[in-house]
Amino acid sequence: MIDAEHLARLPARAENGLLHAFIECPKGNTHKIDLDKKLGIFRWAIELPQGLTFPANFGFIPATMAPDGDALDVMVLTGGPLPSGTLVDIRPVAVLRMEQEENGEMVRNDRLVGVPPLSQTFGEIERLDQLRPTMLWELGVFFEVYNRLINRKVEILEPGNEEDAAELAEKAIASKQDKNG
């Protein structure tokens, strides 16, 4: 089981200094899957429209708190899907900056973009400018369509680079530590 108690013991960083990413939705998945922390199981959330799939592995960084109050969302770039429940060490390389409507107002809900150094496809990428030029645009288009599906307005902003990604992670780690005192 992967319940709140187990998740609370997962650190944001691995011993090697890389960030831990916990995968909820595999790349290529046609269904949104969420971890139900109370039950300790994965819960089906929604089916995507035909032809729409997750463009990267989607999950969160444990032991973090983003400005929206949830753990920091992460898109993990690999050559193939990672199973739900996988913990993978990643290097932050970019930020998909976005605002989404919550209770009638637009709020930031950025996604960290990371790569596992051992990935044969993306492992050597260390900076935003090493990604193919359309990568962040494609991730943004996915979130625009996904949010339209659930009747939520979203605006994709200019992407952040690897320094912005590292700063986003550090702030989310510090926010969680501050909350836990």
Rank of each mutant, 00 (worst) to 15 (best):
S84G: 08
C25I: 14
N29C: 13
K176M: 11
L128D: 01
D34F: 02
L112Y: 01
I2Q: 06
L39W: 01
P83Y: 06
L39Y: 00
Q177C: 00
E170V: 10
N161A: 05
N180V: 13
A66C: 06
R97I: 02
R97W: 05
P26L: 07
L39I: 01
V115P: 05
L87R: 11
V145A: 12
I61M: 03
L96H: 04
F122H: 07
M75E: 10
V141T: 14
K176F: 15
D164S: 08
A174N: 14
N161C: 09
A56H: 04
L131C: 13
K27Y: 06
G85I: 00
L149E: 08
P26I: 02
N151A: 15
N161D: 15
F54K: 05
V88G: 03
R152N: 14
M75Q: 07
E155W: 06
A12Q: 10
M98L: 07
A94W: 02
L87F: 00
D34P: 01
N109P: 04
A8F: 00
V88Q: 09
G181W: 06
E163Y: 09
L35Q: 00
K37D: 00
K38Y: 01
A94E: 03
H20V: 00
I173S: 05
T121Q: 08
L87N: 10
E99T: 03
R91Y: 06
D3Q: 03
S84I: 00
L112S: 01
G114C: 08
M98W: 01
R148V: 12
N29A: 15
H6K: 12
A166P: 03
N180Y: 09
G160A: 09
E126G: 15
V145E: 05
F60D: 07
G80D: 15
T53W: 04
E5N: 05
D70A: 07
L18C: 07
D178M: 13
M106I: 05
